[in-house]
Simulated scan of single mutants.
Amino acid sequence: MTTPATLDVVAIGNAIVDVMAPCADAKIAELGLQRGGMTLVDTERAQQLYDAMGPAREISGGSAANTLAGLAALGAKCAFIGQVAEDQLGEVFAHDIRAGGIAFDTPAREGNPPTARCLIFVSPDGQRTMNTFLGASQFLPADALNVDTIASAQVLYLEGYLWDPEEPRAAMRRAIAASRDAGRKVAFTLSDAFVISRHGDDFRDLIANGQIDILFANEGELAALTGEDDCDAGIAKLTPNVPVLVVTRGAEGAVAVVDGVRAAVPAEPIAKVVDTTGAGDLFAAGFLFGHVRGLAPETCLKMGAICAAEVISHYGARPEADIAALVSEATA
Rank of each mutant, 00 (worst) to 15 (best):
M1I: 06
T2H: 08
P4C: 11
P4M: 13
G13H: 02
C23R: 01
I28F: 06
I28A: 06
I28P: 08
Q34P: 03
G36D: 10
L40Y: 06
D42F: 06
P55R: 03
A56G: 01
S60D: 05
L68F: 02
G70I: 02
A73N: 00
C78Q: 00
F80G: 00
V84Q: 02
L89C: 05
G90P: 14
E91M: 09
V92W: 00
A94Y: 00
H95S: 11
R98Y: 05
T106H: 04
P114M: 11
I120K: 03
F121E: 05
V122C: 10
V122S: 05
S123K: 02
Q127F: 00
Q127M: 08
A136V: 03
Q138V: 05
Q138G: 12
D143Q: 15
A144H: 14
L145R: 09
L145E: 07
Q154Y: 05
W163Y: 12
D164G: 09
P168K: 04
R169W: 07
R169S: 13
S179M: 05
A182L: 12
G183N: 13
R184A: 10
V186C: 13
T189R: 00
L190T: 15
R198S: 12
F203A: 12
I207F: 08
G210L: 04
L215R: 01
N218K: 11
A224T: 04
A224E: 11
G234W: 00
L238C: 12
L245W: 03
E252A: 15
E252D: 14
A254Y: 02
V255R: 01
A256F: 00
V258H: 01
A263H: 13
A267R: 05
E268R: 13
P269Y: 07
I270L: 15
D275N: 13
T276L: 10
A279F: 02
G280M: 03
G280V: 04
G286A: 08
E298H: 14
K302H: 12
I306W: 00
I306P: 02
V311N: 08
I312A: 12
S313D: 10
A317L: 05
A324T: 09
